[in-house]
Design a binder for these strands. Sequence first.
DNA 1: ATGAAAGCGCTAACAC
DNA 2: GTGTTAGCGCTTTCAT
Lengths: 338, 338
Amino acid sequence: MPTMADVARRAGVSAKTVSNVLSGYPYIRESTRERVMAAVDELGYEINVTARIFRSGRTGVVGLAVPELGQPYFGELADEILEAARRRGLHVLIQPTGFTREGELAALREPRRKLVDGLLFSPAALEQADAHLLDDLGYPLVLLGEQMFSTRVDHVTMQNVEGARAATDLLLDAGRRQIAVIGMLHSPTAGSSNLRFTGYREALAARGITVDPRLLGWADDGWHRGNGARAMADVLDAGVEVDGVVAFNDALALGAMYALQVRGRSIPDDVAVVGFDDIEDAQYSMPALTTVDPGRRDIAEVAVALLHDRLTGAAPAEPVLHVADMRIVERGSTPTRR
Amino acid sequence: MPTMADVARRAGVSAKTVSNVLSGYPYIRESTRERVMAAVDELGYEINVTARIFRSGRTGVVGLAVPELGQPYFGELADEILEAARRRGLHVLIQPTGFTREGELAALREPRRKLVDGLLFSPAALEQADAHLLDDLGYPLVLLGEQMFSTRVDHVTMQNVEGARAATDLLLDAGRRQIAVIGMLHSPTAGSSNLRFTGYREALAARGITVDPRLLGWADDGWHRGNGARAMADVLDAGVEVDGVVAFNDALALGAMYALQVRGRSIPDDVAVVGFDDIEDAQYSMPALTTVDPGRRDIAEVAVALLHDRLTGAAPAEPVLHVADMRIVERGSTPTRR
DNA sequence: ATGAAAGCGCTAACAC
DNA sequence: GTGTTAGCGCTTTCAT
């Protein structure tokens, strides 16, 4: 394998000049650049990225710590993030944390070993009480989601309360009053579940309706379809009438629709359903799912841009908090509005 | 940041001994190991992975080139591969190729730059005619899927023909004779589409049935749900009776079910549907989808093990071809067998 | 079972 | 605009 010194010899220049050419250093005579590139081609030279990384201390790789890619929200988010990174010449090392504390702590340690320059971190197991773990990490970190907050790190998140309130309002506007919630968690974390429940509660309160505990569907084992179906079945089994459902993500909503239809409920006539996330599947369910688009593409783009700016020193001194705009996407699972 | 020399000084040993301890070299006196580990803890030392990589020439990172993670099959496959790699102490750099030739060629070039030690490659745009591109790459490559074949590289794949034949037989056994196919491609590649069509054709031929071209649903724009719905609608619009559907993946099948139900067909009574892949969604559709489980977990495990063995020199000299076993998972979209 | 010396291939810092 | 020098922090090689 030829090295930079071989290229330099062949081109009749120094290794540093070859390095300059290959790094895009601008002040180089055109004739020199051409000579160097010709030598590169003739030798079939490919730069040894590991030597460059070692010497420069920058890998050009950022970590992405998410619970799991099989969940459509994270799979689609990962695609958006990989694309945003690619456009900036960054590679991404994905570390699925499996919803575990150890997995997330391991992801936080990784950049210290210098394999990645910074981290995009979507916590699911760590809690608000662990926020101090994000201080003085020694590398740039961008927090995603709403599991924890810190005034000391960059954070990109979504309008959880507003989204859930808008979803609930949509059902209330359609005259629904027995609105179940799917996706409650017993654990007292500051995560999406609590925020989305707050939106639900606020929407009801604004119309003077109190929360009926029999309408709360619990999904402590994860926001998968199966748990959505189970939680919906639990609510129906409790014997309470239901004419609307706010699910805390689309997978839960699709599972809930399944449970409703198995029990002979018609959607949206008997029960109207709203999800959260706008995953691709939401377009093709039967009926298609009305849902909250949390602005996923914007989240990916802003998060990567922010991390990139931190790495290049282009970001502001103060930590940035970016909240993407949500919007409701109306489809067949809710009645058409007049 | 402390270096290995700092740890060595503190522990009263040489840098090499520290290196030996941290690399798991077995022949080290227990007392020495303890002294070294104590020094590591006291200094809060973390090894500089980039220096290790640079010197050793091995990154411990393998590339995974797949079309996109948003497609559930690839998202779930990626999770399985990441887990199999994690168990072996390997990191994975995912490179979505976006179904493009350039994306796939870029992925093939990446290991030459030494950022990854080897590559797991699931081609979608390259074709059989490009197989020579896989020769003499200078790094270990494991091919996934059936887009291209080569006798010169390791290959892990699935029983495409057998799976599609079994899916078709299941419908034939149920008395269905007007069986549509969803997922035909016009491009003459050696991919899954052609193999699965072969299985379909063989199953029909075994019963003396010829293929009716009006029953072929084309999905050249990708195997997404929307295209499955569109292809199914095209077949129905052609005015031919349909009592069964073999879809070449689950997303197409779910889209086809949507189109069938929109047009008032009952599943499985009017039309029975079988998919391919056994993605998680297949369990929660309405009705739940009968599908071919291609052995995805086995594919991930074997592919990573094979690449790992190549990197450590433990693999056999000859290229390995591993074909995972398929099995049919019967659910509500096909009639119950007596 | 441990140590000493060498050097991987590149870029930072500075010289000219 | 380009060259010189030095050295990043580890592992390899070889010695003991």
